[in-house]
Amino acid sequence: MNGIITLLYYITAVSATALTFTLSPNEKQCFYAFNTNTNNNIGYYFAVQAGGSFDINYTIKAPNQLIIVQEEKQRQGDYLFNADQIGEYEFCFDNEMSTFAEKVIDFEIKTSEEEEEKNVKANLPNTPKENKAVENMQLSVEKIERKLTFLENSLNYYKTRNNRNQSTVKSTESRIFWFSLFDLILMVAMAAFQVSVVKFFFQGSRKHLV
């Protein structure tokens, strides 16, 4: 069953939209971001948190339906591309290769507007000292922003690793349980078979003596 979810927002400033959603087996979901400026950068991050082999197929299309990115069986991605067209950008996730595995996916869209940054720089005070002070403040803000972005990406990475490790531990525990149960049943069956064989030999010996 294919599903379409519209995550529609106007890209007019620095912004970010994040969500976590579940993708059922044989299902496809699409999200849309509306770009209003040809000078925007769109960054996106996704990670499969649970389900199957932690992989998913995804496609990104421009407003003219031109494929920007198309990947198969990816566990996570963190990319940035230039949105040089006005209109809806389509982000689709496809779980049609899974017949029973449900996937949990973290997805985030980040946008930044180059034109706004140019306007800010153009509107700086004309006084050299003030201009220098404002530039230093901007550099400090940009540095803090980069560190926060790096920290956020690191937290997302560790969150993904933690979820995958927990899933691996649960899968290993389940395998150990069923293997131990099978081993126990096999030992009981072997014991019963050995008792039956010994009993058969003794019964045969008694008949021969009679």
Rank of each mutant, 00 (worst) to 15 (best):
N2F: 02
G3V: 11
I5R: 13
L7N: 06
Y9M: 05
Y10S: 05
Y10L: 04
I11R: 02
A13T: 07
S15V: 00
A16T: 00
T17Q: 12
T17E: 10
A18V: 07
F21C: 04
K28M: 07
Q29Y: 08
C30V: 05
F31Q: 01
Y32P: 00
Y32L: 02
Y32S: 03
A33S: 10
A33M: 06
F34R: 02
T36E: 09
N41M: 12
N41F: 08
I42N: 01
G43K: 11
Y44R: 02
Y45W: 12
V48S: 03
A50R: 02
A50Y: 04
G51A: 11
G51K: 01
F54Q: 01
I56R: 01
I60A: 02
I60V: 14
Q74V: 11
R75N: 09
R75S: 15
Q76V: 04
G77D: 08
D78C: 08
A83D: 05
A83V: 00
D84V: 02
I86K: 03
I86T: 10
E88K: 03
E88N: 04
E90K: 08
C92A: 05
E96P: 04
M97H: 09
M97T: 04
M97S: 08
S98T: 08
S98L: 06
T99E: 15
T99S: 12
T99N: 09
K103P: 08
V104E: 07
V104G: 01
I105Y: 06
I109M: 14
K110R: 15
S112C: 08
S112H: 04
E113P: 14
E113N: 15
E115F: 08
E115P: 06
E117L: 15
N119F: 02
V120D: 11
N123F: 06
N126Q: 04
T127Y: 10
T127R: 03
T127G: 09
T127S: 14
V134D: 03
E135G: 03
E135N: 14
M137G: 11
V141T: 09
V141A: 15
V141P: 00
E142Q: 15
K143F: 14
K143A: 15
E145W: 07
E145M: 07
L148T: 04
T149W: 00
L151G: 10
E152L: 05
K159M: 12
T168L: 15
K170E: 12
T172N: 13
T172E: 13
T172R: 12
W178I: 06
F179Q: 11
F179W: 06
M190Y: 02
A192E: 09
V195S: 13
S196K: 08
V197P: 06
V197M: 15
V198K: 13
Q203M: 09
G204E: 10
S205K: 15
S205W: 14
R206G: 10
R206P: 03
R206M: 13
H208S: 12
H208K: 13
L209R: 08
V210C: 15
